[in-house]
Nucleic acid binder design. Structure first.
Length: 365
DNA sequence: CATCCGTGGGG
DNA sequence: TCCCCAAGGAT
């Protein structure tokens, strides 16, 4: 066991396996500079690591950048974030998607303050107990922020490991084997850098479609590369069809420019986010005698169809939304649980991208 | 273990 | 155009 885990090039050539030191050397030369990362050799702020890791879940580095900066400027510490109203966190998060992350981010900040005195725990198990922090994020924070011997496995690392060892079992079944391989490779001295090195390798060299194997520090030990087609890993289970739903949104616009909005329910899709009132979204297959859209209108008036429609794709279904617009006097009152909001106030609303599309399609803003 | 949960960009 | 994907978690 001791010889297999020694990270010297000699040991690697003896065993034929990948050498962690080779990857770390590559990382020291080619690491990405990212807003949440510390300078080489320094340890990143746990709050920065936490915030970035939550934002980066299923989300690209490019998309996260502006949000990370805005959050850090507005809430410089976990205590500031914990003290913020949830509505403000949601409106700041609007557009980034997966809004349960924002709710959990806020709940987690409060838990860190309440249960840990405002300091993040450094133990993986304690991190795992926090809302919104799962196996990946717990290991990532432990390794990156505290240099604890943890082995986070994200999509990048799944891809790198599955190619390195040519793991033919499809995901997600292969996750256990991949995690075991990753843990076995993790060097005890630089676990945080090693995790980030694997992610950088996956993001810049060992990419999903056409990996740049000739530039890879692990080209020689990579079994998939030796087979000749690294891109066929990781093997994944086939995906099902994406159903389609449709509905209509009611864009009521007052003479003073205010638009009628409301807050979505506490659970489910876009929970607690702001929406333009709309009909339920029905799957078009089973709807044979759909009720008239006007039956779901916030109030009876002359609704006029805006030409065209809004198309939006969620993770598990695609949506076509017609927009019905009505122009009303400035004195029109808001129905129960609705509110009038002028465009200057949109920035304080938790408007998801779909609702931005609806507003734009209806000629607002 | 399967499903739900957003969004925007790239091949 | 369409499909895939991006530092996953909760239930």
């Amino acid at each position: 066991m001791a010889e297999a885990s020694s990270g010297t090039p000699a040991a690697a050539s003896r065993t034929g396996g990948p050498d962690p030191a080779a990857l770390l050397a590559w990382y020291d030369r080619h690491r990405r500079r990212l807003p949440w990362r510390a300078e080489p050799g320094l340890r990143a702020d746990p709050y920065h690591v936490f915030l970035s890791e939550i934002m980066l879940q299923q989300t690209t580095v490019k998309a996260v950048g502006p949000y990370f900066g805005a959050f850090l400027a507005r809430w410089p510490s976990v205590s500031h974030l914990a003290a913020a109203p949830l509505e403000e966190v949601l409106s700041a998060w609007a557009g980034l998607g997966y809004y349960a992350r924002a709710r959990n981010l806020h709940a987690c900040a409060k838990a860190v303050v309440d249960r840990h005195g405002g300091r993040f725990p450094d133990a993986e198990a304690a991190l795992l107990d926090l809302p919104g922090i799962g196996p990946y994020t717990a290991a990532a924070i432990a390794a990156i922020a505290f240099d604890r011997p943890a082995s986070p496995v994200d999509g990048n690392i799944e891809r790198v490991i599955s190619r390195l060892y040519a793991i033919g079992e499809p995901l997600p079944g292969a996750k256990g084997a991949i995690k075991a391989r990753a843990a076995a490779l993790t060097p005890p001295d630089r676990p945080g850098d090693f995790a980030q090195a694997m992610m950088d390798l996956g993001a810049t060299i060992c990419t999903p479609k056409s990996p740049a194997c000739s530039l890879c520090p692990w080209m020689e030990p990579c079994v998939a590369r030796a087979e000749g087609d690294a891109a066929r890993y990781p093997v994944k289970a086939p995906k099902g069809e994406k159903p389609r739903r449709e509905g209509a949104a009611f864009l009521a616009v007052r003479a003073d420019g205010a638009v009628l909005l409301r807050t979505r329910p506490d659970k489910g899709l876009l929970a607690k986010m702001t929406e333009v009132p709309s009909t339920p979204w029905d799957s078009r297959a089973g709807a044979k005698a759909p009720a008239r859209a006007e039956d779901h209108a916030p109030f009876p008036t002359r609704w006029r169809a805006v030409p065209g429609a809004v198309e939006h794709v969620f993770t598990h279904f695609a949506l076509t939304l017609k927009v019905l617009r009505a122009d009303l006097p400035a004195a029109t009152p808001a129905p129960d649980r609705h509110r009038w909001v002028r465009p200057e106030g949109f920035g304080r609303e938790a408007l998801p991208s779909l609702m931005r599309k609806v507003l734009a399609h209806g000629g607002v803003e």
